[in-house]
């Protein structure tokens, strides 16, 4: 699966990074960077947790 970010909607709350630091991080400007967009296995679980926790629903998982 592929992690997709709705960039205009993302406000940099950073909760996704807390859920999946191995997959994404906020850069120095507070912009979210998806380091690992294509995920499966254990990474898919972490990605699902990140998608779930985003308070403004800016992340989703799509078929790769």
């Amino acid at each position: 699966m592929k992690i997709e970010l709705d960039r205009p909607r993302c406000e940099g709350h950073g909760l996704c990074e807390e859920a999946a630091p191995q997959l994404m991080h906020l850069d120095d400007d507070g912009e979210l960077v998806i380091d690992v967009p294509d995920v499966d296995g254990a990474e898919l679980d972490a990605a699902k947790a990140a998608v779930r926790i985003c308070p403004v629903a800016a992340l989703r998982l799509a078929a790769a």
Binding site: R9, E11, H13, L15, E18, R52, I53, P55, V56, A57
Partner: peptide
């Protein structure tokens, strides 16, 4: 409980939560 509902959720999720 980071997923509590008090700030709402989704498109209208609290803009002032930061």
């Amino acid at each position: 409980p980071v997923d509590h509902l008090s700030f709402g959720y989704g498109p209208h999720g609290c803009a002032g939560q930061g």
